[in-house]
């Protein structure tokens, strides 16, 4: 994938930052408004997918390397599991041991916020990996198809 035209590249460069900020907002306010870790993670992943569509695989991987994405993928899930373990302090798995805080404030409702952040990392990196894996697949199978036709 070489990327698309100059117009697409410029515009996508311009919006990618905003998309990521919007995704982060959805994640951080997931316990107060509609949204949460999964929805925000999908939005963040879509920013990287946009980069990949507009500029090609190499530019996208220079922003978020494949190896880094793999590590983030596992780390997000492990962080969520760890949050579950923290609850054991209170007697039960996934018990909300942090303070509930004041209603309608960002730092409230205990471990839902860290849980959302962990899930967002997991979802963003794994969706990005799924998309890149399918993109690589497509290129390779396309080549093999052409070779098959030449033979």
């Amino acid at each position: 994938m070489k990327g698309m035209s100059l117009i697409v590249k410029t515009i996508s460069d311009f919006v990618v930052g905003f998309i990521i900020i919007f995704g982060a907002y959805i994640v951080l306010y997931g316990h107060l408004t509609p949204g949460g870790g999964f929805a925000g993670g999908v939005i963040i992943a879509s920013a990287f997918i946009l980069l990949m569509l507009a500029h090609g695989k190499d530019v996208a991987f220079s922003k978020l390397g494949e190896r880094a994405a793999h590590i983030l993928d596992s780390a997000g899930a492990l962080a969520f599991l760890l949050i579950g373990w923290v609850g054991v302090v209170g007697g039960y798995f996934f018990m909300n041991v942090f303070g509930r805080g004041e209603q309608f404030r960002l730092l409230s409702s205990g471990m839902i916020l860290p849980g959302n952040i962990a899930i967002a990392f997991k979802v963003a990196s794994s969706l990005f990996l799924v998309f890149s894996a399918l993109a690589v697949f497509r290129r390779r199978s396309f080549r093999s198809m052409i070779e098959g036709e030449l033979r």
Binding site: F38, V130, L134, F137, S141, S144, G148
Partner: peptide, 27 residues
């Protein structure tokens, strides 16, 4: 439904990947 959509996404990704692999093998 949200959970089911997430699961569906996972299954869909696996299915599409498998379709591509099958196309690679069988043409």
């Amino acid at each position: 439904v949200l959970t089911s959509i997430v699961i569906g996404l996972g299954v869909l990704a696996l299915m599409v990947a498998m379709c591509i692999r099958i196309y690679e093998r069988h043409g």
